[in-house]
Amino acid sequence: MIKITTRRPASDLVERVAELSGQSIFACYQCGTCSSGCPFIEAMDLHPHMVLRHLMFGMEDVLTSKTIWVCASCFMCAERCPRDIDMARIMEALRQVNLRENVDHIKISHMTEAELEGVPQIALVAHFRKNTG
């Protein structure tokens, strides 16, 4: 049975994400345009519009979702959102909430020669900026 409550979520995650991203999370009306255009949807567990919905309820599962690390900030969603929400910034804020605890998402010192040799500098810099704090 679904319980409807007027209690506010205990977590301050929404406020933190709103502050870090500068976006109005509650402006979203769940049209799903962000998810329909996302080129990475296949690799995501939570679709972008679901990330926003979970966030509205203060659900912290968004912080452990694969989605936030799969997002490559291609800005397709941001460009198309009818509510002018920059979803790429929300994803970045969620990564930052994690990374600012001084826990990196990747282990740079464990990277192999095959991962490092021949790869363009722009790929490595971007990869580290998105996955380490």
Binding site: L20, S21, R89, E92, V125, R129
Partner: peptide, 10 residues
Amino acid sequence: GVVHTLSTDD
């Protein structure tokens, strides 16, 4: 820096 930082305070 390759990717523009999207956090407001960074």
